[in-house]
């Protein structure tokens, strides 16, 4: 599992991904960790196949008892089907996810972890030293869907928005936006169902100060590439399966 620091301040953001031992027939995912002095948030901790390499990688940064918070942007198996295993491994943790998906996500196993339901309007996740904003991104692509925004690090973890279908071992950052577009087009046109939801999300995200946009698949956008993505996405018709 590749581990890359994407923000280093009084706390850290780390991305985990490009697992060499991942079976070929499951989609590659990026897992994120926000590490403060005594707490850790794992963002979209991944599917059941990824649990062991993911937790082993996390142990390079934090002990088990300081993994205090999990966040699932939505209910998909590549996001959170590992929950039943985290549930048995973590002595004191909370899962922050949509209130709408609670009864569904609990199918993955959630006995000891506390499920903290997020209302449609979003909310905050408090990690002691810092507070992260939970931004609504409904229908992008899941019907109840959230992003995480860190105003201090200026990072937006955008879930499936900005995702790309890449060959294994692809670099962590977008280095040529124009070349990257074709890796994102089908993903967004087919998995994003609503042009209206897309416009609402773009309007809300344009109000944020973002240095890094970090999706759950593919590469991370930095600097001007964030706005390039928003412009490209704004012009892209989505929901093509029914057009």
């Amino acid at each position: 599992m590749k581990m890359t620091n994407i923000y280093e301040g009084s706390y850290q953001w780390i991305v985990f991904g490009r697992d060499e031992n991942k079976p070929d027939n499951i989609i590659d995912t990026n897992q994120y960790m926000v590490r403060t002095a005594d707490k850790c948030l794992l963002i979209d901790p991944g599917g059941v196949e990824l649990f062991a390499p993911m937790l082993a990688a996390v142990l390079h940064y934090a002990p088990v008892d300081q993994i205090t918070d999990l966040f699932a942007s939505h209910q998909d198996p590549d996001i959170i089907s590992s929950l039943g295993l985290w549930d048995q491994a973590l002595p004191n943790a909370k899962l922050h996810s949509s209130a709408l998906w609670e009864g569904f996500i609990r199918h993955f196993g959630c006995e000891s972890i506390e499920y903290v339901p997020i209302a449609d309007g979003g909310g905050v996740i408090n990690l002691g030293d810092i507070e992260l904003r939970v931004i609504p991104a409904h229908y992008m692509h899941s019907s109840a869907n959230f992003n995480i925004y860190d105003p201090q690090a200026k990072i937006l973890m955008s879930g499936d928005i900005g995702a790309a279908l890449e060959a294994s071992g692809a670099p962590m950052y977008v280095d040529n936006f124009d070349a990257h577009v074709e890796k994102m087009r089908f993903f967004h046109q087919r998995w994003m169902p609503s042009n209206q939801a897309k416009r609402v999300w773009i309007d809300s995200v344009r109000e944020l100060d973002i240095d890094i946009m970090a999706p759950q698949h593919g590469r991370i956008f930095k600097g001007d590439d964030v706005n390039r993505f928003l412009d490209w996405f704004e012009a892209l018709p989505v929901g093509i399966a029914v057009q």
Binding site: A52, P53, L55, A56, L59, H60, Y61, Q88
Partner: peptide, 17 residues
């Protein structure tokens, strides 16, 4: 979890598992 313990060998917090 046993697999985590094997894979985490050499990690700073490997004992915590």
């Amino acid at each position: 979890i046993e697999l985590v313990a094997t894979k985490a060998q050499g990690a700073a917090y490997e004992d915590s598992i």
